[in-house]
Amino acid sequence: MTTQAASTPPAARRTGTPPLGATMRRDRWWLQPVLIATGLTLFGIYSIVVAALNTDYDYLKGGARYLSPFYSPDLRSLFGLHIPFTYAFFVIWAPLGLRTTCYYYRKAYYRSFFLMPPACAVAGRPRAAGRYTGESRLPFILQNVHRFFFYFATIVLGFLWYDAIRAFFYHTPTGTRFGIGLGGVVMVVNVVLLSAFTFGCNSFRHLIGGRLDCFTCSASARARHGAWKKVSVLNGHHQLYAWLSLISVGVTDLYIRLACAGVFTDPHHIF
């Protein structure tokens, strides 16, 4: 029987603050935060660059119209704006705000960027005793506006549905005709994933039915319980849709961007 040194001195381990990363876990707990930080950073850079570029977001060839999700709705034609710089930032604040205040993303970036904590049973950034305030003070108290971003993001989502459906109607010399192009399919997949993400939102789940204390006390409560159950199914996969829709937005934009730039021709068939 041999006595070994514990991972940290017992006194510190019980009362003081352990150093960042202190844990007895032996699995690769750091892998997930690293992957998430990488993924979120890449998407962040991509979206800022894309929004700033102000080019190649509107594909108008062969009668098709594919609008990049970063630039929808088209504020210029909507309001007759004639601004020399990008308008994307007037659009993407809503979906970005939704994602920033989303309960899943909060978990993801609190862990991987703020290291509070980086993983379960792993010590986070040491702070002076009592200085941790979580979401009770600025800045994170602002997370409570999540539902307002949900409202605005839903409006944007409506435009994306409009864009996706419009992508199947081609302007031809003989009038508007139905057609299927790969770009349209990409846009539909994207908007479906975005919807699955948006309507799996925890705030929406609360508002649609979760806030009721009784699911069975009236006909309307029962109806809302039914809706709550459906939203709960989406919410159960919120993390999955958060990532899939993030990727699909990037892929959709990239597809349209490359098609605009003439890297390839959008395969399509007009009926």
């Binding site: 909060r106 609190y110 509070m116 904590p117 379960c120 979580g134 979401e135 009770s136």
Partner: peptide, 15 residues
């Protein structure tokens, strides 16, 4: 109860 302190990192759910 201090619910605002929770930053929903979901470790409770995991264990």
């Amino acid at each position: 109860a201090g619910i605002a302190l929770c930053n929903i990192t979901k470790c409770c759910t995991e264990v």
